[in-house]
């Protein structure tokens, strides 16, 4: 079995197994916990509105903090939109999903995807540099933060190298790219990448709880 066969077959199956298992495990594990009942008198009848408000409110920096946080938000958006476009609008990726779901969708031209990848890697590097140079952020960063950055950046780098065919053998490059993605999937549920699921839950919960107590998100 070649490295590429391993990457396309067993490694992929294992990674997706762990990915699905891990996510379900974490979601069920948290939702099935005992939720503390809020015994206070609700200050307003429809707290859920506050929850929705919380989701929107935190999508953009709060005015007083704008000077301080704007760059971080923009970098964050660049990274996340980059992920979205590269993962879901690159033709070979669409073909991967099409194989699973049975339907495809239009792709972006390869040149556009390449440009987005380069910009995204740039944004990821800036994010890392900011984390390393800001003493406060460095203090609150742990292995999870750095490893999350690593497993997110690696597929971009290996993918770009494979598309540009800078490897000695294309098939080895493709295999390394696939394996780097499987690493991301395996780590996903157990580290901070899980925020893809939690961010909505936590923003809604915070918003609705504050609203119930008459505050604002």
């Amino acid at each position: 079995m070649t490295l590429l066969d391993f990457a396309r077959g067993p490694a992929m199956q294992f990674a997706i197994f762990i990915f699905v298992f891990g996510i379900v495990f974490r979601l069920v594990g948290v939702w099935a916990m005992r939720h503390k009942r809020d015994l206070s008198e609700p200050r307003q009848p429809s707290a859920w509105k506050g929850g929705i408000h919380g989701l929107i409110q935190h999508a953009w920096p709060y005015k007083p903090f704008r000077d301080k946080l704007m760059t971080d938000y923009v970098i964050g958006y660049v990274i996340h939109l980059g992920l979205l476009f590269v993962i879901f609008f690159y033709k070979p990726h669409i073909l991967f999903f099409q194989d699973i779901f049975g339907f495809g969708w239009p792709a972006l031209p390869n040149g556009v995807i390449t440009a987005i990848s380069i910009i995204t890697i740039g944004a990821l590097v800036i994010a890392l540099v900011k984390r390393l140079t800001d003493p406060v952020r460095r203090l609150i960063s742990n292995f999870d933060d750095y490893f999350t950055w690593f497993v997110t950046t690696l597929p971009f780098v290996t993918g770009l190298a494979t598309a540009g065919n800078v490897w000695w053998h294309y098939e080895t490059g493709l295999a390394i790219h696939l394996l780097s993605v499987w690493l991301l999937l395996i780590y996903f549920p157990f580290g901070k990448l899980m925020h893809a699921f939690w961010f909505g839950v936590s923003r809604y919960t915070t918003g609705s709880r504050f609203a119930r107590r008459g505050g604002m998100a």
Binding site: F17, I18, F21, V28, A32
Partner: peptide
Amino acid sequence: IAAAAGVAAGAAAAVVSR
């Protein structure tokens, strides 16, 4: 199977958490 195992493990974890 992965999803089912995830539910089971999640439930078990929840019992411990509770």
